[in-house]
């Protein structure tokens, strides 16, 4: 696929055409079997009312003294993602050491660790949330647990890559001077990886705040719950203000977290 070579050979050209045609066929196949019905009849009307709602957000909803308002919902979302990130940032450390290939001599150890992490990573957090709801009941705590467990997959992978990249000098020096395994971990490995760990945890926090906004769609707390109610009742001005709140919250968190990450590394 290297197109920067000036004299393209004939076979490469033909291959590119075949790939292109294949993509188009795939695309048409995908579109043709998806059903597009029931869009035209009331689409314009719905669009109009949505536009109406989004341009006139329900400002009264931002703060209501008796509770269940936007600010409280956003706060709960924030709390869910803070706790979820915190839990996974600690739970994933043993997984990270398990999966990194320079911490054990046997390839099978890190290989199996990596596989477990992949499975955790592709297991959707929404399903995890539903399972935890069954266990501890609907609410923010189920959301915290779902995020905490799901985040292990990605966080432990990033952590293990950091561990694999550590400078071996200090480790060898400590081992040579007769340090125990634990001492090597404490004085040679940890000081090198902690800043990177914190930075990755903050990055995951940015992702979790987005996830936490949708956990409420299945009943795991946060701003998603009022949002799904507003969507179901076609209360577009309320949907507008909630979306606005989510966007503002996410942007603020991104800014703070980005600033912190730049300071740490």
């Amino acid at each position: 696929m290297n197109q920067s070579v000036p004299s393209k050979s004939r076979t490469a050209l033909i291959r590119n055409w075949i790939v292109g045609a294949g993509i188009i066929v795939l695309f048409i196949w995908s579109l043709s079997s998806l059903q597009f019905d029931g869009i035209q009849e009331y689409g314009v009307q719905v669009m109009k009312s949505i536009w109406e709602g989004f341009t006139h957000p329900d400002w009264d909803y931002v703060y209501m003294p008796e509770g269940e308002d936007l600010l409280r919902g956003l706060l709960e979302t924030l709390v869910i993602s803070i706790l979820g990130t915190f839990i996974s940032a600690f739970l994933c450390i043993p997984f990270a050491f398990w999966a990194s290939n320079n911490m054990s001599r046997l390839g099978i150890v890190s290989g199996s660790g990596k596989f477990v992490l992949t499975v955790i990573r592709v297991f959707p957090e929404i399903i995890m949330a539903i399972l935890f709801i069954v266990a501890v009941g609907p609410g923010a705590f189920a959301g915290v647990l779902a995020l905490g467990v799901h985040s292990i997959g990605m966080l432990a992978k990033l952590y293990s890559e950091t561990i694999e990249a550590v400078d071996n000098g200090p480790r060898e020096a400590l081992i040579a001077s007769g340090a125990s395994k634990l001492q090597v971990l404490r004085f040679a490995v940890l000081p090198q990886v902690i800043p990177q760990f914190i930075s990755y945890a903050l990055y995951r926090f940015e992702i979790n705040i987005r996830s936490a906004t949708v956990l409420g769609l299945v009943g795991a707390g946060g701003i998603g719950t009022p949002l799904i109610f507003a969507l179901q009742t076609r209360n577009w001005s309320r949907v507008g203000i909630i979306l606005l709140g989510i966007v503002v919250l996410v942007i603020i968190i991104d800014l703070i977290s980005g600033w912190l990450r730049r300071r740490i590394i």
Binding site: L34, Q35, F36, D37, G38, I39, G43, V46, M47, I50, I126, R210, S211, T213, V214, L217, G224, L227, I228, L231, Q232, R234, V239, L243, I246, V247, V250, I251, D254
Partner: peptide
Amino acid sequence: LNLVRTVPDLLFAAIFVAVFGIGAF
């Protein structure tokens, strides 16, 4: 772009379901 990326895919889906009805579209 940044605005679009702040909204998670499931939120987009929930909104579009409300607009266009339930389904793959």
